[in-house]
Each structure stands twice: as structure tokens, then as C-alpha cells.
């Protein structure tokens, strides 16, 4: 009996080891003995995932240097297309024109929603699509009208190169006007900071970026969360893409493969996105 117990214990250990192997060792093995640099830029929604992946790759192999810059989806598409970076990130699907012009190869590794957000103290946390459109057009300019305090609504939007803006404008505002008085911030992170610091703000961020510092606004009764984005109940969503000019180089390919590995997919989940293509 005792032997049997030991045998069982040993078998369990071996099995655990085997199970763990493909998950942890395999995706990073592609970087073994490699040396060089991976340059990444573009979409700012992607940054938390990129940084975590880069951290793990750097820990496993310090000879691989990974630089990550923001700039927005427009920058990601442009810089990847012009060969300025190895991987360009985009929060919108590159147009057929862009794919053809630059010979881009498109990797979609996550699904992400874009949700309107307000300060957590704001009592208005649910809007109809029509109300949201009127708020952004400037037709509704006081929170009182929506059941909140008697304070002017401070609008926040993103710059024109933003993929997040593109999706929000098309799917949430139906390409409606965004008033010229809206403050413009240059990244998802800056948007979150701005809204978290302004009790009368309304802005929009990638659902993966929503945390306790900001409150999501339900759109027609549906709160933007990973579950509602995944089920399709929340309609304002897009893919997160990484682009390379033609076939990726060896290091860039290893990086993208890592994103699609089980560890990479776990990072994507941990950072609040929905993995898969």
C-alpha cells in the first residue's frame, strides 16, 4: 500500500510536470539563444498586454530587447508599413487599401469593447444610445438633464489617429458629431486618468482599461464588460490587431506566437481582454 501511495504521488508529480511543460517552457523556447531587438508601437489599448509579454520574455532571455511605444492605431499601421517598427499595433482593422499598400500581415489576438466611462461618484451610469449621441454632439450639456448634479458635462475624446475613437464613433455614436469643445487626450491611459480626476467628465476607453478608478456607463441597459462584449450583447467592440510588414522576422514571429500560446492568452485575460481571433 505504501509503495502504491508513493507511486501515485510520483505519477501525479510527473503528470503535473508534463502538463506544465507545453504551457510555460514551450512558447518561450523560441527565444532561446536569440539575440536582438523587437520594436513595437501603435495602439495604446494593447500596451498592458505588450508590456507583460515583454517582461516575461526579457526575464527568460535578457538578450532580447523589446521596446514598446504608443502613438495610436494610425501610428501602428503607418510605422509597421514603413518598416520603422517590427510590430505595429492597431485597435481597428486596417483598411484593404492599407493592407495592399504596405503588404501588411494581420494578426488578431483579442476582442475588446469600447465603453463610455464617467467618474465613479457620478450617479449617471446608464444612458440610452440617443442620450449618448446628444451628449457628444453637445445637445445635452448638463448632468441635471440626465438625472445627475447641476454641473456642465465635460466631454473627453481621443485624437483622430485613435482606433478606440474610430470604433466608438462608428458603433456607439453612429458617426454622429463630436462637439469641438471636447477635450482631446492622446491615449487610453491618459483618458482614464482624465476621467478619474474629473467628477463631471464623460469619456470612453477600451473595456480592458476599465477599473475601479472609473465607472462604466451602461448603453441601452447593457454594461460594457468582458462578458457582455463576448456574448455580443454590448455592441461596441473591435479586435486588437498586431501587424507586420510581410511575413514577420524570426523574433517578431516568436513574439506573436507567444501571444497566441496558452501563457500569452492568460496574459490577455489577466489584462482584461477576451483572447482569440
Amino acid at each position: 500500500m505504501k509503495m502504491g501511495l508513493w507511486f501515485k504521488a510520483a505519477a501525479v508529480v510527473v503528470m503535473m510536470g508534463l502538463a506544465a511543460l507545453p504551457a510555460s517552457a514551450d512558447p518561450l523556447a523560441a527565444f532561446n539563444g536569440q539575440k536582438g531587438e523587437i520594436r513595437i508601437s501603435g495602439g495604446t489599448a494593447h500596451i498592458p498586454v505588450m508590456e507583460e509579454a515583454a517582461k516575461q520574455i526579457r526575464t527568460a532571455n535578457p538578450d532580447v530587447q523589446i521596446s514598446i511605444a504608443g502613438g495610436g492605431s494610425g501610428v501602428g499601421i503607418k510605422q509597421a508599413g514603413e518598416g520603422l517598427v517590427d510590430i505595429g499595433n492597431s485597435g481597428r482593422k486596417p483598411t484593404d487599401e492599407e493592407v495592399a499598400k504596405y503588404g501588411l500581415k494581420v494578426f488578431r489576438w483579442a476582442l475588446d469593447g469600447v465603453g463610455a466611462v464617467v467618474h465613479p461618484d457620478n450617479p449617471v451610469q446608464s444612458l440610452s444610445k440617443d442620450q449618448l449621441k446628444q451628449v457628444y454632439a453637445g445637445a445635452i450639456d448638463n448632468w441635471k438633464v440626465l438625472g445627475g448634479q447641476d454641473k456642465a458635462i465635460n466631454l473627453y475624446t481621443r485624437d483622430e489617429a485613435s482606433g478606440t475613437r474610430d470604433v466608438f464613433w462608428k458603433r456607439a455614436l453612429d458617426k454622429g458629431d463630436i462637439h469641438a469643445k471636447a477635450n482631446v487626450v492622446p491615449s487610453n491611459g491618459a483618458m482614464k486618468t482624465a476621467v478619474a480626476n474629473d467628477p463631471y467628465a464623460i469619456g470612453y476607453v477600451s473595456v480592458g482599461h476599465i477599473d475601479v478608478t472609473v465607472a462604466p456607463v451602461a448603453l441601452d441597459g447593457v454594461v460594457p464588460t468582458n462578458e457582455t462584449v463576448k456574448s455580443g450583447a454590448y455592441p461596441v467592440s473591435r479586435g486588437l490587431y498586431s501587424l507586420t510588414k510581410g511575413e514577420p522576422g524570426r523574433l517578431a514571429k516568436a513574439f506573436i506566437d507567444y501571444l497566441f500560446s496558452s501563457t500569452g492568452q492568460q496574459i490577455i485575460v489577466d489584462k482584461g481582454f477576451i483572447p482569440g481571433n
Binding site: G71, G72, G74, V75, K78, D159, E160, A161, A180, K181, A182, N183, V184, P186
Partner: peptide, 24 residues
Amino acid sequence: AAQVPGGLLDSARALTAHIALVIA
């Protein structure tokens, strides 16, 4: 904000900031 500011408390965009925002 890409508007002509009507007062000191209005949001405004400088030429330099405009370059930084549109360059992408």
C-alpha cells in the same frame, strides 16, 4: 479642444499640440 477659446476657462489647442495630435 479644436475650438476658438471664448475665455480663460475654455479648453484650447496650441499649434504645437495640434502637430503632436495629428502627426499620427
